[in-house]
Amino acid sequence: MKLYWTHGAAVLACIALSSCGLVGGGAKAPKGQVVATVNGEEITVTELNREIGGAAPADAEQRKAMEQAALQSIISRKLVAQAAKEQKLDKTPAFAQQELQTKESMLVGAMQRKIAAAVPNPSRAEAEKFVADHPHMFAERRVMVVDQIVVAQFSPALMKEFEPLTTLEQVEGVLGRENLDFQRTTTVLDTLNAPEGLTDTLMKLPPGEIFIFPRGNAVFVNQIRESRTLPFTGERAVNYATAGIKQMRTQEAVARQLETIRKAADEKITYNEKYKPAPAKPAAKTPAAPAPNA
């Protein structure tokens, strides 16, 4: 979480931290790519722009105000970080573990971005074929308003009781009888971005049919209240398909690279016996094909 303090609060913080002195006080005024210094630690234009992010102010005055707000936020953060270092909070085991985890996550992200940069963009013909091959996402796209009950996992026997039910009120009655907590809500399902298996199920449902699917530690009991056809076509559909194909291929490339790295390192990984994974089960043998008739 970022600290967003006002300029006055930053000055008060600086006064409270006895060793920090005034920001840049007594030092030579920063120039060029350095916008400020805090106890000798530089804040660069690059760091300031990163703090602002992708914001696009309407005019120079708004840009200046945005820069000042971002700069004061950086200064406050650096002051608190410097004070934490003086108190040796960066030397604790918990900090070291979190720092390592953060660094590893950043390295993984850098590797993923490198792999993604090497994945070629799909051709227009590939994107158009994808649109044509997935009518439920595009030409026949459906947007559905769904009434939903969310409940914790329950026994298969109880699931059997739901089969003849035709309304969510009846489902609520069964859950109430079993003293199971649940939440009633409404959501929107869009076949443009719904999982393909779920989309196939939805398209085959009779009107008003209740359908159930698990997700994580919960079960979702659903009934479609309203369904509309909203075709997604033209250039927007092609662009969406292009991005989707690129994302899928990037995920596949990352998975392949991970598999390669794991295979190359398998012999270098050692386990404490208590945490050693169970050996992989041998793959089932495929029965031999019958000999052709003479």
Score class of each variant (00 low, 15 high):
R262C: 08
E235V: 01
T260Q: 15
E252K: 02
P214C: 04
R142T: 09
P279H: 11
A70P: 07
A280S: 05
E226H: 14
F211Q: 04
E126K: 02
G53H: 07
L205N: 02
I52L: 02
L48Y: 08
R141W: 05
E209W: 00
I245F: 00
A283T: 13
K103W: 14
G24C: 00
A110Y: 02
S105C: 13
F95W: 04
G54M: 02
Y271C: 08
T166V: 09
C20W: 12
A60G: 14
T270W: 14
P122S: 05
T186N: 14
E67F: 07
R236N: 10
D133I: 07
T201K: 13
T167Y: 14
K263V: 15
M1K: 15
A118D: 01
A29Y: 08
Q112G: 10
T250E: 05
R63I: 05
A284K: 11
T250F: 04
V23D: 02
K276E: 11
L48S: 04
N49V: 04
I15S: 07
R77P: 07
A16W: 15
A60F: 09
S18W: 15
N121W: 06
P292W: 10
G208R: 12
G173T: 14
K31W: 09
Q251G: 08
A81R: 09
A265N: 10
L192N: 13
P277Q: 00
L230V: 11
P164E: 05
P164R: 08
F138P: 06
E47H: 07
N239E: 03
H7G: 13
E42A: 11
E226K: 13
P287F: 00
F162W: 10
A117H: 00
R113N: 01
E209T: 06
G234I: 01
A218V: 10
A289K: 08
G216W: 01
R113L: 00
E273H: 08
E67S: 11
S19H: 14
L175W: 06
S76G: 12
Y275R: 15
Q251Y: 01
D59P: 10
D200R: 08
E172Q: 12
H134K: 01
V188T: 11
A56D: 11
K85Y: 13
E41W: 07
G24V: 05
V80N: 06
A60M: 12
T46Q: 12
A264T: 15
E47Y: 02
T260S: 10
P164W: 09
L12P: 05
V145P: 04
K2N: 15
M111C: 07
N217D: 08
R141E: 03
A84G: 02
E86T: 10
R256M: 06
I74F: 02
E126A: 07
A94F: 09
A117I: 04
R236V: 08
I212Q: 03
L100T: 11
P282D: 13
A243M: 01
G8H: 14
S19G: 12
K160N: 05
R63W: 04
I149A: 12
P135L: 03
I245T: 02
I269R: 10
Y4N: 10
